[in-house]
């Protein structure tokens, strides 16, 4: 099999911030031991808990953060050892769409200047053809008529329009891989469908790969080859069919928390109980970090942290002592079998 385009080897990222009262530092272990191969041309979705380290992982892959420990490799070479020529290749081949589109666009430049500069630097089109080149890329992300968007500054665009400018910017360079952090969150479903189709088309014509971080499980199911689920700095499950057959209790909890589209069956409006609480305890010492919220916990979960290991023939991996049992549960019945998060 071909070499992975990007690889994370035992990566940890610890953020330090100054204590509010008194001296000393506060540590946040944002990524806590992640191994991951991202293959040429694949679409890998990363979903999971808010604050679990997904954006941090993206920044590590983009060389915007240096890992506290472990290494990140680009086509087999450690990013810390990239020669400057390789670094240029890396910058061009690995493109990004950031979570806050507004802050990733230069507020003092019009769209045309900002993107035109990139077109010139990478000689994507001649100066005479630049405007037309850009118009084509804006139209492809549903900004019509494109000319009317070229002259705008970022603050003159709606949230979803900014997001699409960021997507167009990443795509026009024809990179080998695009790392996109919540690229669809401000788009209506109709534009979302268009952008997802564009991703598929671009993949077909250029074999571009994607790492897409998203909370939209429906959109990820429709586009991902593989999906990784993160919880508190770790990948707890990764595989091709986690949506139909989750092996990790957290994955199940996430899937069961999806909202229905039936206003007559609203869960929230019919609810009388106090809201469920996420777990605010400090990470458990030694045991499984999902245990405080887990409906399946047994004795061993308190003392032994489960390792990410293969759980089926299809290559799914999960970090749970009871993964096989839980996977079997879902396979037997289509009904949700886990207590809903409202009851846990």
């Amino acid at each position: 099999m071909s070499e992975p385009i990007l690889r994370l080897n035992g990566v940890e990222q610890i953020y330090r911030s100054r204590n509010a009262n008194g001296p000393g530092w506060n540590q946040v272990r944002a990524v806590d031991g992640v191994d991951l191969d991202i293959r040429e041309g694949e679409t890998l979705a990363i979903v999971g808990e808010s604050g679990s380290g997904k954006s941090t992982l993206a920044k590590l892959l983009l060389l915007l953060n240096r890992p506290t420990t472990g290494e990140v490799q680009f086509r087999g070479t450690s990013l810390s050892a990239l020669a400057s020529a390789d670094y240029q290749a890396f910058r061009r081949q690995v493109q990004a769409v950031f979570q806050d589109p507004a802050s990733s666009l230069n507020p003092r430049m019009t769209v045309e200047r900002m993107l035109g500069y990139i077109v010139q630097r990478h000689a994507l089109a001649t100066p005479g053809e630049t405007r037309q080149f850009l118009a084509g890329h804006l139209a492809a992300v549903g900004l019509n008529p494109p000319e009317s968007y070229l002259e705008r500054y970022p603050h003159q665009l709606s949230g979803g329009q900014q997001q699409r400018i960021a997507i167009a910017r990443a795509m026009m360079l024809r990179p080998a891989i695009i790392i996109a952090d919540e690229p669809l969150s401000s788009l209506d479903v109709s534009v979302q469908a268009q952008v997802l189709q564009l991703m598929r088309d671009l993949h077909k014509t250029t074999n571009v790969g994607f790492v897409v971080i998203s909370h939209d499980l429906g959109a990820m199911e429709s586009i991902a080859d593989r999906t990784a689920v993160m919880y508190r700095g770790r990948i707890v499950e990764i595989g091709r069919s986690i949506y139909e057959r989750p092996y990790h209790p957290y994955t199940k909890l996430l899937l069961d928390a999806r909202l229905s589209l039936d206003p007559r069956r609203s869960r929230i409006r019919s609810m009388s109980a106090a809201p469920s609480r996420s777990d605010s305890s400090a990470p458990a010492q030694g045991g499984c970090r999902f245990r405080p919220r887990c409906a399946y916990a047994v004795e061993i979960c308190a003392t032994q942290a489960p390792a990410l290991k293969p759980v089926d023939q299809a290559g799914t991996m999960a970090a749970c002592h009871r993964a096989e049992e839980i996977g079997a549960l879902r396979a037997r019945s289509a009904e949700p079998t886990v207590p809903s998060p409202l009851e846990v």
Partner: peptide
């Protein structure tokens, strides 16, 4: 304005519950 776009499904449910309460 788009209050829960950056939240995972379980946190979203919790925040919506709080708003509803």
């Amino acid at each position: 304005d788009e209050p829960t776009t950056a939240l995972d499904a379980t946190v979203q449910l919790q925040v919506l519950q709080t708003l509803y309460r």
